[in-house]
Design a protein around this nucleic acid. Structure first.
Lengths: 253, 253
DNA sequence: ATGGCAGTTATCATTATTTGATATTGCCGA
DNA sequence: TCGGCAATATCAAATAATGATAACTGCCAT
């Protein structure tokens, strides 16, 4: 539509991507009209894009209901991503080791703009579905992983992030005070870890340590989710912090 | 190139998808000329598609080397896929339970045309990278998972599959004899499970059981990978089969 | 059953967008 | 410093996308 004065910009392709992005956790199967509503594209455009994506194997379609759904190709893209990111290959064996040794859920989170994204997850207990699958994005400032990664950046960047990056109220106890978050990040810088509680899920304690490259800044974060019912924060630090720090340090060390 | 006489087919979108699919385990970062070589598209087309994908956040690019790489958006697509597939949500808690109880690597495989694709993986020991990440595709006939799922289909389908589906020689011991594979599938139908050894990896024993829906045919397979060094096939059956069958049966049961 | 209707499929003239050739610029190694 | 390759930018030609609209379908309520 009215995107950019960019002669290299192929708007048809962009429209097709809009269709793909219309699917998310609360939109798992969409009809043509759903897609029209969600993308704001013309009915005809949606028809052509969806059809093309179907022919190309990017969308499955139920002949009965005529609803479009993501196809397995979406997992193949994740597979390609995994191979492309060198941090993943280094992190995975360490996370497996941790998971085996401690029997707790351990994740690799990475920065993705002003969000974190979970790129590896080794769930060890039944929890919410969203907390067990890869690809979930959360506002960086609201998460231990995000803060501990941010803590490896410059003061200016931290300040800008604290001032402008989005916050989402995950629970009634989610910290929404930017000054307090800034303090948490400063603490994370000196401590080398960040611990939070009840931020995105009640009774969930989250402990994260940065995966640092040579240059010092974070390429990711190793994060564990611990039940706040069976442990308090002090116990989590005592029992898990050394191993988490070790695991994180070992990845690019 | 000139695909179909299909008035609804948006070739620009298809070209963009070709760019995405140019990335795989052995092509993790590609230059424009690489993309030209791999896709067979015109230089200008590649330029525009790659640029658009970059602007839309689907490709990352290293300003120094000018190489394009998959972005985190590829993981977000996987996230959307996970929510869209009802089998995943049912299977995940069961697999976690299994993984916890047995301490062995357990996977959910699904049919994807004539291949299987691993859609959930809970690795429990260090192994090859490819064996630990989701989205990997393998020829169905060469895998225990593929055979056990195929075994729930009609005789005609099995016959056709055995005659025409692709085979890949994963190791020197990979069974490439279609008649033998057909026998293995028939056995899987009566046994309710399939076990293989040394097929895609030497000294790997693979045991799979079907995830059946009401109608009886398989929506997936629960599969465990066991070291063929520490166990022989008889031991694997004794020690794992009941639990694998249980887990698979419990998913849609 | 049947009729109505929302949603899907198909058609087509118009023209905006892509196309692909080429020219220019920038980068890296010799 | 220069040479050569790869990446960017440009542009006229025309293809391929557009969006309005018409025809069709299957589904639900009656």
């Amino acid at each position: 539509m009215e995107k950019k004065r960019d002669s290299l910009y192929a708007s048809t392709l962009a429209r097709g991507l809009q269709i793909l992005r219309a699917f998310d956790e609360s939109h798992v199967a969409l009809s043509l009209t759903d897609l029209v509503a969600r993308t704001g594209l013309e009915k005809s455009a949606v028809q052509r894009m969806a059809h093309t994506l179907h022919v190309e194997g990017m969308l499955e379609r139920d002949p009965k209901s005529r609803l479009y759904r993501p196809s397995h190709a979406w997992l193949e893209l994740a597979y390609a991503y995994y191979w492309s990111d060198p941090v993943i290959a280094r992190a995975l064996p360490k996370l497996i080791e941790f998971s085996r040794a401690r029997g707790e859920t351990v994740n690799l989170a990475q920065m993705s703009g002003d969000h974190i994204i979970y790129s590896l997850r080794l769930p060890n207990q039944r929890t919410h579905f969203a907390a067990s699958i890869v690809g979930r994005r959360l506002p960086a400032l609201n998460t231990a992983s995000g803060r501990v990664m941010l803590a490896t950046r410059s003061d200016a960047e931290i300040e800008a992030a604290c001032a402008t990056w989005p916050l989402v109220q995950g629970t009634e106890k989610t910290v929404m005070d930017r000054a307090e978050i800034a303090r948490s990040i400063k603490a994370a810088r000196t401590d080398g870890y960040c611990i939070t509680r009840d931020q995105m899920l009640l009774n969930e304690i989250s402990l994260a340590a940065p995966v640092r490259g040579n240059e010092g800044h974070a390429h990711g974060a190793v994060q564990v989710s611990i039940s706040g019912i069976t442990f308090d924060e002090r116990q989590v630090l005592e029992q898990f912090l050394p191993h988490v720090l070790d695991t994180a340090a070992g990845i690019l060390g």
